[in-house]
Nucleic acid binder design. Sequence first.
DNA 1: CATAATAGTTCAGTTTTACTTCATTAAATT
DNA 2: AATTTAATGAAGTAAAACTGAACTATTATG
Lengths: 289, 289
Amino acid sequence: MPQSLPDLSIRQLEYLVAVADSDTFALAAEQVGVSPSALSQGLAELERRVGVSLFDREGRRRVLRADTEPVLDHARQVVALTADLAGWARRTRSGDHGRLRLGMIDASAVQHHGEALRQFRAEHPELRIHLRVGPSGDLLRELVDGSLDLAVCVEPAERPRGVSTEVLLTEDLAIYAPDGRRNPGPSAGWGPWVLFPRNAHTRSGIEAALRRRGAPVEVVAESHQPEVLCEMVRLGLGWSVLPVVQAEWGEQPLVRCEILARRQLVIARRSGAAPHPAGLLLEQALREN
Amino acid sequence: MPQSLPDLSIRQLEYLVAVADSDTFALAAEQVGVSPSALSQGLAELERRVGVSLFDREGRRRVLRADTEPVLDHARQVVALTADLAGWARRTRSGDHGRLRLGMIDASAVQHHGEALRQFRAEHPELRIHLRVGPSGDLLRELVDGSLDLAVCVEPAERPRGVSTEVLLTEDLAIYAPDGRRNPGPSAGWGPWVLFPRNAHTRSGIEAALRRRGAPVEVVAESHQPEVLCEMVRLGLGWSVLPVVQAEWGEQPLVRCEILARRQLVIARRSGAAPHPAGLLLEQALREN
DNA sequence: CATAATAGTTCAGTTTTACTTCATTAAATT
DNA sequence: AATTTAATGAAGTAAAACTGAACTATTATG
């Protein structure tokens, strides 16, 4: 094994290929976009580095020697490989290629960003998007262990190590009463409640807000699924606090009593990880929404 | 087709391979013989040029991302190709392989350099040597038109354009009389002659020398082949002037009357051409002879 | 045959790039 | 908390690549 390889640059190899494919150095120089002088010097440097003469004088022009075929072959091959690599990089960069493992809470996947997501998919047909919808806690865990590249979730009380977040949007949470009334009355009379489960990120914010308002927090049913909570409210099982976009979505929207609180949806990614190219594009698409 | 390729250098690709094969950047840096800082900067530059992030942070170390496999593959491939090229270049430089088309006049090929040639062949078994033996004029023509890489011939009266020569050795030309006498007697009584043909380089020198000595130049037979001329002398057909190494070679050497002149053998090559590596070695071998 | 045009190189000067050393940041270890 | 280690950043320097202009040698042209 040779201890040190000649430090050939792609540029120099391009010069060689261009010269092989052009009648004169001047044309070759134009083809690669440099002055004839630069081409000449670059080729001289290439010759020096390879350590073998590549050209014969023929009148006032220089022609490639027949026995430098291996060098020219090498140049062509490496230039072609590099073109392939550049293509791969371009596709990767533009996100038209590869895989994006995306986690989203339901409100994001459906109400907030459903349309943006559909459009993004359509614009990047070669990008395999794995969408995982679930509670924020699950998403963050999967993000940390590398099962996801990117997640849209509720801002966590404490950010897990190795995860960085950026606020995407703020949304309202409103109180919905079972009888459809618009006025909730004094807070002491609110409830009982059907809420998101205890471990849900949104739940703690809701409970805190309710307590601030002096409302009793008696919980009679729990679900991660807002549709389930909505239906329970409709059935008169209890009161709920829900994101307005979910509670007032679809055929039978609930009637809002009052805005109780707000929650922030954030984009989360592994802080060490290189920004996923497709992920960056998607973030942009979501923000523009 | 991407208009312009990233100008990756072999060095940078080596860095990448070294990092992939080493536990830490510091070890990789040592392997390629640069400072860790240089390695870090070089890889950053590589990343920038490819346009794709290559590493993930993992604690305080950086590890290659799984999805940069294409880049690493590319690097390995190009480095390997370059190692091959370097090997080829080394062999070519040392003249251990390839082809050398060599022209020699008979005296050089047989008497002067036969042994050196045999030895050179033995020392470079992979070098395909095409030996073409012929008159100097023919050799020079073939040298000019590219059919030969190198020629050993008699110094021409006028050097053809595009050919450069270097004196290799000087040898004696002697008069040989048909009856084997050692004393040629007065020059007026010399001849008639059996000589090299008119167009031979050596012939003009001989004629000039004879005229200077006042000898009549009546030519009764001509041949390029010294053995033929020798035989004619032996047969009593006439006198001759021959290189002593040829006239006094073999089983039946002629008996020399007198040194008449000298001729110079030269090494000739195309002046525009790059020095043929094997050719240079051969020149050296011939000189040492 | 002189003259102009052409192909390529060399030179001088400028900008880029790559490297080394030293300092700094941040994570792992003691 | 202090130390060690991995990697990066900054400043300075040496090497390299480039441009434009001058130059050499060859070929074409009036």
